[in-house]
Write a protein that binds this DNA or RNA. Structure first.
Lengths: 145, 145
DNA sequence: TTACTTGCAAATCGTTTGCGATATA
DNA sequence: TATATCGCAAACGATTTGCAAGTAA
């Protein structure tokens, strides 16, 4: 990440991107794998993972890191938000008041029964910002078709 | 979850809660495990996990499910928010405009370099709401000391 | 006394990676 | 032809679980 990349538009990559674009249900890698196998029966799950990684680095798709299995715990049971360092994983409290009304703004607009929300800021902690900014190369990448 | 629970205040549970309350760095289960071992050298990692689960169900602590390894992918690269069903894991887009200014509100207040944010609503999809509400028992639980 | 909880070890699950083979540019 | 990418299988890391023994209420 944050590095230059030469990429090739392989058959696998193309099908993965096309299939994902067709779906509107935010599939997991495994669900997408099952779909893609209709067209490429010999594709491997590892290939799907690798391509999703590449495509999201290029900004062609989004990776939703939600509801993960790696948990962190907070001794403070009061609702509040967090900032996470994208480099070292450090987590701090975010200096922003809890927005207790934000859930109401969905009231007529969704059929879900809303139970809560989670807001997380992503960034670089002061220490990592030093390191990363020192070696950052802002190269733009383009994707073929 | 969502079920009644009789709990006992064991030595392990007490130390885990006390230690976590002392820490302000949002530890992972493993980090907490290392700390607790100072007091209870024979405690197992499984016990730490089980207790953290119980304590968060009781509302004594918070479980931060961030930055997880379980990913989902979105063919739409435009920034937007999501609603996730806490019962079946289904994910839909949230009908809420992207708040492009919210990151600015942290500007003077944190030393982090903010790169983005993620907002996720948690709730029950229409199907699961049916099921769950049918068998919900709203029992309050208390924790000893 | 009893059923909740523990320590231990094995199992699980999503994801990542090393390898030699393949195919894109 | 170069080397990015592939398929495969093994490795990985966090978490969960089965079980027999221990213990709080």
């Amino acid at each position: 990440m944050l590095t230059e990349r030469n990429m090739r538009m392989t058959r696998q990559r193309k099908v993965i991107l096309e299939e994902l674009r067709k779906m509107n249900n935010h599939p997991s890698a495994d669900e997408l794998y099952e779909r893609v196998r209709q067209y490429l029966p010999r594709i491997s799950l590892g290939t799907v993972y690798r391509n999703l990684e590449v495509l999201s680095e290029l900004g062609e798709i989004q990776k939703l890191e939600i509801s993960g299995t790696l948990k962190r715990f907070d001794g403070n049971p009061k609702k509040h938000y967090h900032i996470r360092c994208m480099n070292c994983g450090r987590v701090d409290d975010a200096p922003l008041d809890f927005m207790k009304n934000i859930e109401n703004s969905l009231l007529g607009a969704t059929k879900y029964k809303i139970m809560g929300h989670r807001l997380e800021f992503i960034g670089l902690c002061p220490e990592c910002f030093e390191q990363v900014s020192a070696r950052w190369q802002g190269k733009k990448l383009k994707i073929g078709s």
